[in-house]
Design a protein around this nucleic acid. Structure first.
Length: 370
DNA sequence: ATGTCC
């Protein structure tokens, strides 16, 4: 069993024991070929978050979780850093938690997907660790790749972390009602149906991130352009020696789609990186963030005596947090997350990525009214 | 994580 497990984390990267116990337990599932921990691995509901699992002959919807298609999109604005109106924008940005007034089914159609029963929630951020963030480039590490991505150090960027909202949840629920955390034989009708719904959730989630970026840029008075959009909760087929294997990603960013942004927390830098070399050893996957250090309830316990709401809506980097849900404001505090620099460095040292640029937050939008 | 659980 141990030979199936790989962990991409150095000595200086603290990892919660429970996350590793969950990793070992998951590696024992029937059909498991390999279990790969990313440097941001942390405990989830029975199975770890921040890991990739390769199976043969069977798929496990429960490993992916309910936010099928969740990921991170990176979009360019047209606003120069010399034109920042932060306080005005903090007042103006609104409604990204509420239904879009535009034609949702048309947006989906333009994104190449059919409209359905969840059209009304397209373009909404959702809860938990999801956000829409306005960012500035902090430092360029690879000018050549930076230029190739048509980026400009003086142009503000938007980073969107969101998923498939109620869609993935209904897809997983339909599965767990009958099978719980059990897997599906890959040749079964159930597996085919799950994968079909899964594929829809992935496209829907990407269209969702794009619309969130569009809504944000509209409020800022500019156009937006997608630079990168990468999913971190999914199942995909990989071909290996004439056989099909199934790659499950749970909080593990796909590293076979070009450059990606790995967010820190709302109070730290995020990193634009390029996967390098043979990605097979890390199951074509990377960390999807800094990873939680403290769970939600303990975070609130630890911080409630020491911090006020007013202090938490500002960060050490001078950015502003729009989060009118007090519980969420505490739960997602930067202190709850591990050090993103350690996570990034672990992947650089392992030869998995090279850093293109770092970004710093200007405004993090979570939720306006609760 | 969730048109979420009480």
């Amino acid at each position: 069993m141990k030979d199936k497990i790989k962990i991409f984390a150095s000595e200086k990267n603290w990892i919660e024991g429970e996350a590793l116990r969950q990793l070992e337990k998951t590696a024992e599932l029937a059909g498991m070929v390999s279990a790969v921990a990313m440097p941001d691995i942390h405990p989830g509901r029975g199975n770890p978050i921040g890991a990739a699992f390769i199976t043969q002959g069977i798929i496990y919807p429960y490993l992916v979780g309910n936010d099928v298609g969740c990921g991170v999109g990176f979009f360019k604005t047209e606003i120069k850093r010399s034109k920042i109106k932060r306080d005005k924008w903090v007042k103006k940005l609104a409604g990204l938690e509420s239904p879009w007034e535009g034609d949702s089914s048309q947006w989906l159609l333009q994104s190449g997907i059919e409209s359905g029963t969840m059209d009304h929630s397209i373009g909404t951020i959702g809860g938990g660790n999801h956000f829409a963030e306005l960012q500035l480039f902090e430092k360029i590490y690879d000018q050549n790749l930076f230029d190739k991505l048509t980026l400009d150090k003086n142009i503000l960027m938007m980073l969107i972390h969101s998923g498939s909202r109620g869609i993935g949840d209904s897809v997983l629920r339909r599965h767990t009602e009958k099978y719980g955390a059990g897997g599906l034989d890959i040749d079964s009708e159930e597996a085919a149906l799950y994968l079909k719904q899964h594929d829809y959730a992935l496209k829907w989630a990407a269209a969702n991130r794009h619309l969130i970026a569009y809504r944000m840029s509209e409020q800022l008075g500019c156009e937006c352009e997608k630079i990168s959009d990468v999913c971190h909760n999914s199942i995909s087929r990989i071909e290996s020696d004439k056989q099909s294997l199934w790659l499950h990603r749970k909080g593990a960013a796909a590293s076979d789609c070009g450059a990606i942004v790995i967010p820190g927390s709302r109070g730290t830098l995020s990193y634009l990186v390029m996967p390098v070399g043979d990605q097979q050893k890390n199951a074509w996957s990377l960390a999807h963030g800094a990873g939680r250090k403290w769970n939600r309830s303990s975070t609130k316990e630890r911080l409630k005596e020491r911090f006020t709401t007013e202090s938490l809506i500002r960060t050490d980097l001078g950015s502003y947090v729009i989060c009118e849900d007090k519980e969420l404001l505490f739960e997602e505090a930067p202190q709850a997350y591990k050090n993103i620099d350690v996570v990034i460095d672990d992947m650089v040292q392992a030869g998995l990525i090279s850093v293109i640029a770092s970004l710093k937050p200007l405004i993090t939008y979570k939720v306006r009214q609760t």
